[in-house]
Each structure stands twice: as C-alpha cells, then as structure tokens.
Design a protein around this nucleic acid. Structure first.
Lengths: 216, 216
DNA sequence: TGTACATCAGTGAACGCGCGTTCACTGATGTAC
DNA sequence: TGTACATCAGTGAACGCGCGTTCACTGATGTAC
C-alpha cells in the first residue's frame, strides 16, 4: 500500500479548501480547475480522481463548511462559542460583522454564492439547505418567543443575516453598506429578544456611536 | 436619416429585456451574447454597436428594472399600487409571493444575481444600490416607528425580503422554501407595523391555514 | 409619384483564447523479502 | 539494513468546444430631387 492511510483524504481537503477560497472570491464560473489545483499545490490533471465534475466539487465545499469546526473562529477576531447559551446573538454579531463583510475569501458560502446554488442541481441545493437549517437551529436556541413561534422568527432572522450580507456586498457606497449591516444586526437581535433597549447610559444608542466613529 | 427616430432605442430595449430574462434564468456567465441577441431576434454581430461589453449590459439591465414601470405588474397576478398608502405590505407580499419565487425569468434582479454584482465593478454596484434604495424608500413610507427609526427597520425589511427569496430559491425542499417565504413575510409585515395580530377569527393563523392548504 | 442615393442597423465569418475533461505516462511511496 | 517491486497519487500534453470580441460587408430605410 503506497502512501499512508490519511494521505488521500488530506489532499482532498486541501483541494476543497482551495476551491472554497477561490469560489468565494471569484464565483463558480470564473475559477478554473487548474487554479483550484494550483491553490492546493497540485496540477489540474489529478482533479478527476477526486471529483466527478467541477459542480460536484462545489457541493463538497458547502458540505465541508458545515462539518468543519470553521464556524467557531472562521472570521479573524470574531469568536463564537457554540456551547454558550448566548450563541444566538454571538452568531448574529459575527455574521454581520465587518470582518465577515471584508473577509470574502473565508465567507459563509450562503452569502458568497447563493444565486449559483439556485441554478444548481439537487445535491448542491440540499447541501445549502443543511447549512441554512444549522444556522436556523442555532438562532432558535435561546431565543425568546416574541409574538410568533420561535422557529418562524429564527428562519426569518437567518434570512435577514444572509440577505443583509449579500446586499451589503453588492452595494457600492461603503457607508451605506455599513449602515445596512448595522440595521440588520439591530433588527435581528431584537427579533430573538436579545436587544431590549438600544440606548446606552449616555443616551446615545450603540448604533449612533458606532456610526459616528465610522464617519471619523 | 435612415430608420425612424425611436428605432435604435427600441432595439436596445429589446436586447436589455432579453438579457434580463436570460441572466435571471441562467446567470451571467452561462448566457452568451449570441443567445441574448437571438432572444431579441438579432444576430450577435450587432451587439457592440449598442454596448461596450457584456458586463456593461448587465448594468443597464439593473438600471432598466428600476426605471421601467415593471414593479407594478411584474409578476403575474400580483398587483402593487405605488400610489396607495398601503404600498409597504403590498410590496412585501408581492416580493415574497409564490409567483415571484417561481417566475425566475421576471425576477427582481437583486434576488436573481446578487453574488455576481458583489464581484462586479463600481457602476454595476451603483445600479444595484439604486434599486435597493428605491425598495427601502417604498418600505419606509407608511411604516410605523416600532422601537427603531423607520429607516433602520425599512433597510432590514428590504434585506429580509431579498434574503428570503434568495435562500428560498437555493433550497431543495419545496415545503421548507414555502415555509421560509411565509416566515419572512410574517416577520417583515410585523416589522413595519402592518401585522398586529396574526390570528384570524377561527383561531388559526393565516399562516397555519396557508401551510395546511399547501400540504393538501 | 418615382427613382437614385447616402446612411447606418444589422450580418456572419473569423480571431484568439481559456476552459473542462481525458488519458497515457511518471515517479514517489510503503512493503516483502 | 538494503534492495526490488507493485501500487497508485499526481503529471502534463492533447482534445474539442464555445465564448467574447472584431470587422468588412450587406441591404433596409427615409430623403432629396
């Protein structure tokens, strides 16, 4: 048996991670298999011994994001403790953070390529669904029933986070994008019952202070 | 002067509309200029006398969606009266409607290609921004101040509508997609103060009845 | 009304390019002796 | 410990294809007379 046991799996992981980075940054069609393989320090010829096709690879990219312990410290400087009772607000803050906004390379794939998935096959959509359901479940935990069943609110909150990030990234005006992320964050936190008062001691909202700081 | 005055503009409009249909259905990279021109009953050679490049065309597609009186009766069977005081809830219901979900061809471009725009140039992003701002403005009008400034709520509501539709289309399970659209609709209406009680006379929520009907 | 003509909207062949995919091969690896 | 070897991970040339873009041309159109 040439090559150690874990060798193949390790190489496959390298390819998937390279693909994730490149797809997130440039989209599905603008990344070639040669580029992906080069990102894993390989040449393009070996690709088809690991995957059946380029689209199959993207399905694995989605699946891997959920399986990996990536959620935790995915975006530099943003910590999420999945065991904490506070996961809900932590995830919302992390998802709509400036770090996630800027770090497209390590972006959540739901925010990076949703329109590609909409035009893809069953298995890719199912992988997307799994990631989305995981996010809904996390948001549901610890949320307060707030007029509507918690599952309903959690679903909408997840859509709000994804939508907020997608739209913020598609906008030219940076200040408006920041404002939008902040609006979504405020509303998302409120929906789960995690933000009862938006005023701080000095009478200015956290939002107003943050925007003031952003405007220099 | 050969050809009547409006001729050129009319042909350009045909190309843009054909492009809108095709881009919405298949994405930017999977549609060729030849296909777009064929959709306007033309051949590919004439394209560059109307547009500088393929990506320039998409910018015009975005701009045209906003300028056109398309909003009004964009999705069959869904009516939106922009003059009405009730625009807010009307737009939310239309945007998250089953018709909009299914009619990808005539979809709002924000829901169809947001991730492409995120990787595009300034002018495309600015066109996207204009469409988004228009939606926010409509949602702000007639909304009730609900704990947060109306502009903040309207921005989040718009992101929720776009995100809800984007995610619903990227999910494989049709029933889950329907549930998600409904969750987003309920929450969006509530955010603007357009849904105070979710219970109807018989004690079942509109939502529960609709889901029951959908499940046959 | 009819005809000759200048304009320019639209045509289609051609270009160069990069991609997804295939496949015969190479050479690094762990094993058997 | 050292060597011969079978395996298979990875290579890179080659393929066919479709695309974005260019450009010399055609022919439909409205106008001038």
């Amino acid at each position: 048996m040439p090559y150690a046991d874990g060798h193949r799996a390790e190489t496959k992981g390298k390819i998937v991670r390279s693909a994730r980075r490149l797809f997130n940054q440039h989209g599905f069609d603008n990344v070639s298999i040669a580029q992906i393989m080069a990102g894993a320090s390989l040449t393009h010829g070996g690709f088809y011994s690991y995957f059946n096709s380029k689209s199959d690879l993207y399905t694995e990219v989605l699946g891997c994001f959920f399986t990996d312990p990536n959620w935790k410290n995915c975006w530099k400087g943003v910590e999420v403790d999945l065991a904490s009772a506070d996961v809900g607000p932590q995830v919302i803050r992390a998802y709509l953070s400036r770090q996630h906004f800027e770090d497209v390379e390590n972006s959540c794939p739901m925010a990076a390529l949703p329109s590609y998935v909409a035009r893809s096959g069953k298995s890719t959509k199912r992988a997307f669904e799994t990631v989305f359901n995981a996010m809904v479940k996390v948001l549901e935990r610890g949320s307060v029933e707030n007029g509507a069943p918690r599952r309903i609110t959690a679903q909408a909150t997840a859509a709000l986070c994804v939508g907020g990030m997608v739209v913020a990234r598609a906008i030219e005006d940076r200040a408006l994008a920041d404002e939008l992320r902040d609006s979504c964050m405020t509303v998302a936190l409120k929906l789960g019952g995690w933000l009862t008062s938006s005023k701080s001691k000095n009478g200015k909202s956290r939002r107003a202070r943050r925007l003031g700081a952003a405007a220099r």
